[in-house]
Design a protein around this nucleic acid. Sequence first.
DNA 1: GACTAAATAGAGACGCTGTTCCAGAACGCA
DNA 2: TGCGTTCTGGAACAGCGTCTCTATTTAGTC
Lengths: 196, 196
Amino acid sequence: MARPARFTADDILDGAARALLSIGPSLTIADIARAIEGPSGSIYHRFASREELLGRLWLRSIGRFHEDLLEAMALPDPWAAIAASARCVPDFCRRHPAQARSMLLFSRARLLEAGPASLREDARGVNDAIDEAQVDLAQRAYGAEADARLEVLSVAIRQSPYGITRPFIGREMPPWLDDAVVAASLAIARLEVRPD
Amino acid sequence: MARPARFTADDILDGAARALLSIGPSLTIADIARAIEGPSGSIYHRFASREELLGRLWLRSIGRFHEDLLEAMALPDPWAAIAASARCVPDFCRRHPAQARSMLLFSRARLLEAGPASLREDARGVNDAIDEAQVDLAQRAYGAEADARLEVLSVAIRQSPYGITRPFIGREMPPWLDDAVVAASLAIARLEVRPD
DNA sequence: GACTAAATAGAGACGCTGTTCCAGAACGCA
DNA sequence: TGCGTTCTGGAACAGCGTCTCTATTTAGTC
């Protein structure tokens, strides 16, 4: 029908992720073009702007990470699920360093309030599946107290593991990191909530 | 002798920190000039480049944070010291949001390898006092095993608290955050190290 | 009251980056 | 083989941000 594409959208996102690893978050379109060994024009053929490209990269990375996370959260025993969710983070970051780096680019909140309109909708729904699984997990772990502990659980299985792992992204991750992350998560998840 | 300075270096750093809070890490020289209500030329009279200015801001913030941290680490009981060190992080970030934000700007490693030469020396020594206190604390907490656990202790009292607190910088920090940070730190510090 | 040193003030040069533009290349199909 | 479609490729543009350069202000001193 027409000239075949030399670069798919995913090719470009892959290139951007690689450039991100070596250059950092201030990577330019020229850097991405270098990474895919192609011209900048081809990039704009797929993405409307730099902002949209990076947003899509973030969304893709988060989505892939969530696949792993959802599996861990679904383990029958709730405390095993919490531990597995935590371990999931350093594990994913070790296996996919470029995607790990991409996940640092944005946050859902930042994308919603300042990102390109074309990303808003996808950004809005990005956490839906996880949120649902989290409510379920809280129910199983805490029973009647589930509501009060939902926010703490979120820190336990996502923010804390990611925060601890984060400084190691781009460097070598020590083998004991996984145990540290799990220990921290369980400690937070077991925290008493005091009413005030 | 000569015309008195209208802006000290600290004035400019304060302005940069304020601009950083409202604008984010991509703040421009013009943003800083606006914050101090002065012209951009005066900024370059004190700092050789934007990079050096932001580097100095980072160094200053880290230094001030370390004052608090050193005090906590020096508590006589080692486990109380670990808990206090952890709690120190959300506490500092809550009291000094602008400085907390500044601490996100760089890392010692990044400054050492890519920062302006004029900052190298200061960046190199920025952790010295903490490192020393950490060796002492490890000794008190772990005795003979101190060496093997030094790295884990560093994660327990600094990286983990900061990683967990980090996503809340710029937002309101929930009151249970302090307890969560302490629980995570103690759990990591108590971790068994397995030889392998 | 001139002179000197130190600092301000701000306009503009310069480089870099995101983005656009369009001619041309590559393919399937008739 | 010619045609329409899709994508490439790279040069050019426009805007912005850093940094430089120089004139000017200010305060103390002889």
